[in-house]
């Protein structure tokens, strides 16, 4: 139990992660998937930032006082990069959603699968 309490921050983050991950992989609305992806990734960011935290530390901006304890800057740097990568992915994802809506007139996973199967049947029909 002591260890559970000592890692409470991580466990809470894991719950968020599960929520986001479920939304991503469950069939459904594509915008919802993107939001799920967002939550999933943000919770991973929290995992990283949590591990960079040092108790009683401060933000890693040097104060000149040698007794100051700083939190670890490296996870911050990594997550800055990861956030940017995340937003890049999000932008591409939304762009694709817009095109999918225009082409299929829906952004629901299962409907698109049906339409794709129809396309397949149609193209085979044309071929034979």
């Amino acid at each position: 139990m002591t260890s559970l309490l000592a890692q409470w921050n991580y466990f809470l983050v894991i719950i968020l992660m599960m929520l986001g991950f479920y939304a991503v992989i469950a069939r459904g609305n594509m915008v919802k998937k993107m939001i799920g992806l967002n939550i999933f990734q943000t919770s991973v960011f929290m995992l990283y930032i949590s591990m960079g935290k040092v108790s009683n530390g401060t933000a890693p901006i040097l104060t000149g006082d040698s007794s100051t304890v700083y939190s670890n800057p490296l996870p911050h740097v990594l997550i800055l990069t990861a956030i940017v990568v995340g937003v890049a992915t999000t932008a591409v994802g939304y762009a694709l959603i817009i095109r999918i809506q225009e082409s299929f007139n829906t952004i629901e996973d299962d409907e698109i699968i049906e339409l794709m199967d129809d396309d397949e049947a149609a193209s085979e029909g044309r071929a034979s």
């Binding site: 998937k33 999933f40 990734q41 991973v44 990283y48 992915t89 959603i97 082409s103 794709m116």
Partner: peptide, 28 residues
């Protein structure tokens, strides 16, 4: 040429990102 490229790319994006995120978790 074929509109199905779009959902294919989208699923690729979702799964690719999930894969990359798993990698980042493990790396963390």
């Amino acid at each position: 040429r074929d509109r199905r490229a779009l959902p294919a790319a989208f699923n690729y994006l979702i799964l690719g990102t999930v894969g990359a995120t798993f990698y980042v978790i493990g790396l963390g």
